[in-house]
Design a protein around this nucleic acid. Structure first.
Lengths: 189, 189
DNA sequence: TAAAATAGGTAGATCGGTCTACATAAAGAT
DNA sequence: ATCTTTATGTAGACCGATCTACCTATTTTA
């Protein structure tokens, strides 16, 4: 019955909740270690600094979304369904955060707190670029003659805008609306 | 040559720059007063607390956008032009922040740092609701038979999504793209 | 001269980060 | 089967710096 959980894992779980709920800057080292039920030195044995933990937090959120997206992708047959799987994975990811009090995209929120040169901002920018690239790929498969770049950017704006609004009023109806809008956009190409 | 500027005004100007550039949480009281060239007590003579100053900062940004929007509105003749004036005022507002290092919408960034119950979040949510309502009004004047609510939400997503993306890659080309997208949306209603 | 802004300082908490000293447990060596 | 090494985790003191908030006393301004 060895239910032993490594300190690193406990720290990442605690950081995930606290960083998302209270913000990166407002969450101190002591709060994280206390919430993880772990000694302070266990944090510095596993991470070089708080920024390093923040970076790991962002990478974990990115990977978390990747998993949800690939799950949705597995059940998608057509390029159109694959494109919509991106929106569905956003809804799925939002629902993961409901227990913590939904506050929008954890990556975007964290990026808003990070200084301009910070490495974490690159992680966030990368994910948004990746989503836009996915839209381009699927659009190209759907309608090779369409204005791919413009439409992909349009879809990215709709998705991220819905997430921003959802973060403010605290429900994911916005994300489902974004999905409906995306359908109308791709279906009238 | 009385170039005397009241302490309150100097504080708001310093707070505007520092809160936007470095974030609300990362900016301390002493930094603000030093940057304003003002005594610490002048802050507490004019504002009840730091949160009060943050609230004033948000209100000032909201009013700042209102001014820019009304300026654009004055040169708009048709409902279509008035609707686009919203997008233009966003570009104008973004350009105000260029000297500080553009980091996206100051209201959205600050809201990402504020706790869920904070009064400042209401200010931010209000501004986004207001924009969506403006879209509804102008759309109704343009095409009374169109799907007003859905289209207004669509336009809001495009605008706020463009702002979110712009905040990550640091230029307002995204906002100009959003304007072009908005034109295509309203012109094919 | 009365009001407002000034400089400078204090209180008390919290921050990120470092350090010491000890406990536990599995793996390798004999 | 015993000893030793190496990993990892523990508790808790401690560091310098910074935070908000508030105070006092002096100077400036109107």
């Amino acid at each position: 019955m060895s239910e032993r959980v490594p300190a690193r894992e406990r720290l990442l779980k605690a950081a995930a909740e606290l960083f998302y709920r209270d913000g990166v800057g407002a969450t101190g080292i002591d709060t994280i270690t206390a919430h993880a039920g772990v000694a302070k030195m266990s944090l510095y044995n596993n991470f070089a600094s708080k920024s390093d933990l923040v970076k790991a937090y962002l990478d974990a959120r990115l990977e978390e979304w990747h998993v949800l997206y690939r799950e949705r992708l597995a059940t998608a047959a057509t390029p159109r369904e694959k494109l919509l799987a991106v929106f569905d994975s956003y809804v799925d990811h939002a629902e993961l955060a409901y227990g913590w009090g939904f506050r929008g995209c954890g990556l975007l929120n964290a990026a808003a707190e990070l200084p301009v040169g910070d490495a974490g901002r690159a992680t966030v920018a990368f994910q948004k670029e990746e989503v836009e690239q996915l839209f381009k790929d699927y659009l190209r498969q759907m309608k090779p003659a369409a204005a791919i770049d413009e439409t992909a950017e349009h879809l990215s704006f709709v998705l991220e805008g819905a997430m921003a609004r959802a973060g403010l009023d605290g429900h994911d109806g916005r994300l489902k609306a974004a999905r409906r809008i995306a359908i109308s956009i791709v279906d009238q190409l």
